[in-house]
Each structure stands twice: as structure tokens, then as C-alpha cells.
């Protein structure tokens, strides 16, 4: 069952269409990451789901109920049953950790005893029991993060929204908090929408990734699909590393590349000039490879070599464990699965 459905949501801020007809669904217990460059409309989409922005067009359904519709908030935040973690966390500096978490519980009208039970439980979940009476400013960045999450999930919302919660944290801590988020999300089974511009966040956390660009969801798929079968040149270039080479489609299954002819399916692309895209791992060095090239550049990264083969008007990047000299001739092939033309 879908906990969240966004249908053709459109939002104009100022004179600009920031979100242009975005649609997607999130199933119960799933974590959907909305991934995209800054200014692509991902945070605005999240704010529409939270009811902090009203869509100018389209519908937002939460747990089977219509929440917002073109220029109208149908159900208030109180009835949406959502939790949200803000980019700057928005912990209230004048309240203790306990009071911060208690705020939402008072809104749903729990008794004092019930509130205390829930707060203790949620602090246990994020391993922060010791800090109940501290003010947020006394906590470290990572601890503040966990409190913000605890505050968002204590009401047991149907949907958890996270707006780039890791963007203000240094690299080492990021890893830890990411693991914590993953653990808490899996333990609670809470349906989550996670907005980020960081691929690592999206790939490590998400069950499904929606890639956004210029106000549009350009692809929504599992992390593997997004990586191995990017649906467009934008996704291909935005995610992971890629080789983008200018080529000419000569025939239905023949492409003229700067290093020779390539026999592959062109998936109905028209003949003529275009761009060919493939990942570095699709380049394989073989004794009997189809093509020949010269190693132009070599870098040593993460225990392996990154090589660049020189071709007219550019270079092809690939990784390999073996050592090749600069200037050495190598034979290589390109795995034809998942080749992409613009």
C-alpha cells in the first residue's frame, strides 16, 4: 500500500516554476530518496508534502487521504501524521531535549505518564537517554541530529520527512549518523522521504531513488537501476562517473566512434551526430579487445589505478588493478549492455 502519493504536483515561487508536475509514490516502510542538484525543487516538493507549501496544481495523498490539492490545504498538519527533520534541525534552543521531544506529544493530547513513556522509549531508540535534561546547544552536532530524529518520530508518524539532515555534518560523523538513520528507519519501519544532493546518502539509505532536475523527476528506480541503467544523459552524468563521447550513429546497430566502429543496438536513435555514454567499469582491457588505444594518464586511487586512454577529441576513463605504462598501447572493449545515447 502506498503511504504517499504525489500526483502532478506543481509549485510556482515568485515567477519561477520550481516544481513542474512531479509524480511519485512511496510504499509502506520504504525509504525514498529525492536526489538532485541544488535548486532542482526537491526541498519544495518535500515542503509541499509537509503542508508548508501549497501546490499550485496537483494532488498529494498521505495514507490514502487527500492532503493537498491545487491551491488548497485539504487536511492540516495535525491530521497528516508526519514527522520532519529540518536541514538546520530546528531544535528549540530554549527547551531541553525532553521538552523538545514532548512538544509534539502534547499536540496529540497524551497524558503526562504516556508522554514520559514515549520519550524514554524514543531516547532509548537513539541511545540518548542520558541527555534528556540538556539543552540542545550543549550537544554535539551528531547528538543534535539524533534528537531531531527522535523528536520527529516520537509521535509515531505515518510518514517521516527528512530535508538534507546530514548536510551540516563533517564526513566522519556523517557515516555514523547515516548508519543510525538506516538502523532507526529499519527498526521502526517508518515510511520515509529523504531529500539530499549527496549520492552517497541516497545510495546507502534508499530503497528507491527519485532523481530530480529542473523541477522534474527524471527517473525513479532502485539504486542499482539508477546506476546501471540511467534513463537519461542527465542521470548518467549526475550519478557516478561516466564517459561521454561525441559519436555518429551510422545505422541501426552501427556507431562510428573516434576510436573505431562500434556494433551495438542504438535503440531506435536517429542516424547522425549524438553523444554516447558509458561507465568506466564498462571499459575492459583484453588481449583480443576490439579497439586499440594509448594510455595517456594514470592515477592511483583507493588501491587501484585510474587510466585515461587518449582518443581524438577526448579521453576514455577506466579503472584497472594492473599497471600499465604511460604511452603503452592497450587493447580494450566496451561492454555493450547499457550504452546510452543522448
Amino acid at each position: 500500500m502506498n503511504v504517499l502519493e504525489v500526483k502532478h504536483a506543481l509549485k510556482i515561487l515568485g515567477k519561477k516554476e520550481v516544481v513542474r508536475g512531479v509524480s511519485f509514490e512511496v510504499e509502506r516502510g520504504q525509504l525514498l530518496a529525492i536526489l538532485g542538484p541544488s535548486g532542482c525543487g526537491k526541498t519544495t516538493t518535500l515542503r509541499m508534502i509537509a503542508g508548508l507549501e501549497i501546490p499550485d496544481y496537483g494532488e498529494i495523498w498521505i495514507a490514502g487521504a487527500l492532503a493537498s490539492r491545487s491551491q488548497k490545504i485539504v487536511i492540516s498538519q495535525k491530521e497528516r501524521h508526519i514527522g520532519m527533520v529540518f536541514q538546520d534541525l530546528a531544535l528549540w534552543p530554549h527547551m531541553t531535549v525532553y521538552k523538545n521531544i514532548e512538544f509534539g506529544l502534547k499536540t496529540i493530547g497524551l497524558t503526562r505518564a504516556e508522554r514520559q513513556k514515549r520519550i524514554e522509549a524514543v531516547l532509548g531508540k537513539v541511545n540518548m537517554q542520558k541527555y534528556a535534561n540538556d539543552y540542545p546547544a550543549r550537544l554535539s552536532g551528531g547528538q543534535q541530529q539524533l534528537i531531531a530524529i527522535a523528536r520527529a518520530i516520537v509521535t509515531e508518524p505515518k510518514l517521516l520527512l527528512m530535508d538534507e539532515p546530514l548536510s551540516n555534518i563533517d564526513m566522519q560523523l556523517r557515516d555514523e549518523i547515516r548508519k543510525e538513520i538506516k538502523r532507526i528507519q529499519q527498526e521502526t519501519g517508518i515510511t520515509t522521504v529523504y531529500v539530499t544532493h549527496d549520492q552517497e546518502d541516497a545510495f546507502l539509505l534508499a530503497d528507491k531513488i527519485a532523481v530530480m532536475n529542473a523541477g522534474v523527476v527524471v527517473q525513479i528506480d532502485s539504486p542499482e537501476e539508477i546506476y546501471f541503467s540511467p534513463g537519461s544523459l542527465f542521470v548518467a552524468n549526475f550519478i557516478g562517473e561516466s564517459n561521454t563521447i561525441r559519436v555518429k550513429i551510422a545505422d541501426r546497430d552501427k556507431v562510428v566512434t573516434p576510436w573505431g566502429e562500434l556494433s551495438c543496438k542504438t535503440n531506435g536513435h536517429e542516424t547522425g551526430d549524438t553523444f554516447l555514454f558509458f561507465r568506466p567499469h564498462q571499459v575492459q582491457i583484453e588481449q583480443n579487445g576490439f579497439y586499440e588505444g594509448v594510455i595517456m594518464k594514470r592515477e592511483f586511487i583507493d588501491g587501484r589505478y585510474c587510466y585515461y586512454i587518449g582518443i581524438p577529441q577526448g579521453e576514455i576513463k577506466f579503472y584497472n588493478q594492473n599497471f600499465y605504462r604511460i604511452g603503452e598501447f592497450v587493447r580494450f572493449s566496451i561492454k555493450e549492455a547499457n550504452l546510452l545515447f543522448s
Binding site: 498538519q77 538546520d88 530546528a90 531544535l91
Partner: peptide
């Protein structure tokens, strides 16, 4: 004071 301190309350339905 950042807007989100208020929005955090709004989202909770206060």
C-alpha cells in the same frame, strides 16, 4: 531565528 524553528512546530500540528 530561522523559519524552521516555527515550521518544526507547524509540522507537529501545533
Amino acid at each position: 531565528v530561522s523559519n524552521s524553528t516555527e515550521e518544526a512546530g507547524i509540522v507537529m500540528g501545533a
